[in-house]
């Protein structure tokens, strides 16, 4: 007469061996597949976890463990794993939130604390931006929910609404340009019209610091004003909207905020380096060799 406990023990050992063998074969197979080493690490860990869970489940079935014990154990493991997975899931939830609330859309030019660029993709984990230097930066969605954000892409209607409240920098000239466009196209009302009313433009603000005392005597603000005016006349033709500027605080250097306006965000990214170049050569005219020689 064989002891029934011995039989259950033997079956358990046989099953453990089978599970181990299965994992071993899968590992052997993945090795042959020549997958990247980091993937192999992940697969091995997953196999191990799977094996442990399977052995536990089978053992509890064979030994008819009290269901409340299993419940307690799974609750404990669940807490640990649940808290751990929260890191990953929070990004996915944040992604869904961004897609639903739409603080920005794909193709918008946005500015964040450290980065700025055109939104290429709002994924479930990361949002990707195309930066000025054409590199693609990935920002965890969770961080995007947690930071100040400037969306430079703006609807003309929204600008008009704000202008009604009495404040919108450069609104009047923008309206002049739009009405000129309207006359040209022969459209009656800018805002009633679907083409122009739903129109989106990109207004990109950035600050340059002018070291006006780089030469002696220093460049006066009056001179800078005329030079910027001349420069903007040229860029108005290029971008079809006139850029705006105003002075900010002066600590050693004169901070100057410039607002570039263009139909497409991509246009701003394309012409920005050329604009800086032009700006530098025009404002610091005295530094340039040709002027010196004359």
């Amino acid at each position: 007469m064989v002891n029934p406990e011995l039989i259950t023990l033997l079956t358990l050992i046989a099953i453990i061996f089978a599970v181990w063998l299965l994992g071993f074969i899968i590992k052997l197979y993945t090795k042959r597949l020549k997958i990247a080493p980091e993937t192999v690490n992940g697969i091995n860990l997953l196999i191990l976890l799977f094996q442990i869970v399977m052995i536990l489940v089978i053992a509890s079935i064979i030994y008819e463990v009290d269901s409340s014990a299993i419940l307690g154990m799974s609750a404990l493991f669940g807490t640990a794993i649940g808290f751990a997975i929260a890191v990953v899931v929070s990004n996915i939830v944040a992604g869904l939130y961004l897609i639903t609330v739409r603080p920005f859309g794909i193709g918008d030019l946005i500015k964040l604390k450290e980065t700025e660029g055109i939104v290429l993709e709002i994924g479930l984990n990361y949002t990707r931006l195309l930066q000025l230097d054409q590199t693609i930066v990935s920002i965890p969605n969770k961080n995007l929910l947690d930071t100040n954000l400037i969306n430079c892409s703006i609807q003309v209607n929204d600008i008009a609404d704000r202008a009604k409240q009495g404040f919108e920098i450069g609104f009047q000239s923008l309206m002049d340009e739009l009405s000129a466009m309207q006359e040209k196209l022969g459209i009656r009302d800018v805002f009633a019209d679907e083409i122009l009313g739903g129109k989106e433009i990109a207004r990109y603000p950035f600050t340059l610091q002018l070291k006006l005392n780089v030469i002696n005597p220093a460049i006066s603000i009056g001179t800078v004003n005329t030079r910027i005016k001349g420069l903007f006349d040229k860029w108005e033709d290029k971008l079809s909207y006139r850029p705006h500027f105003f002075y900010n605080k002066h600590i050693f250097r004169q901070d100057t905020t410039i607002i570039m306006i263009a139909d497409q965000p991509q246009q701003i990214l394309d012409v920005y380096p050329e604009f800086i170049e032009d700006f530098y050569i025009t404002i610091f005219e005295e530094l340039q060799m040709e002027v010196k020689n004359n």
Partner: peptide, 20 residues
């Protein structure tokens, strides 16, 4: 044990996530 191992498990989960 489960609360203490939370941070370790978080690193594991993040690792798996990065690999995937």
């Amino acid at each position: 044990v489960s609360f203490a191992s939370m941070y370790t498990i978080q690193n594991f989960v993040s690792g798996i996530y990065i690999v995937i």
